[in-house]
Amino acid sequence: MALEVNDGNFDEIVIKSDKPVVVDFWAEWCGPCRMIAPIIEDLSKEYSGRAVITKCDVDNSPQVAAKFGIRNIPTVLFFRDGKIADKQVGVVPKHNFVNKLNALL
């Protein structure tokens, strides 16, 4: 399961991580977000121990969403060493996420 991150635990789980972190910014009312949710779940299994795969509900985490200027959803941010290393906006095939994540390992 992808880890749920929010305003309260974002720094601890994402920024301070010593592994690459994927954050899937989504919302309940966003149809396309549901299309990429299974991909994110796959990644959480396939990259277990090598990367941290998370999801962040923009409605429940307004501070994080504002900090990273998340207006477009779905947006997936890739973090390494606490900084944004890559970004994917919209619904794309799984290999796009895999390629971006592999580049950070």
């Binding site: 396309p32 923009v58 619904v91």
Partner: peptide, 14 residues
Amino acid sequence: KVIITPDMGERKKN
């Protein structure tokens, strides 16, 4: 907010 859809059909659906 902006929802990015894969195509026109999904746009209308959403």
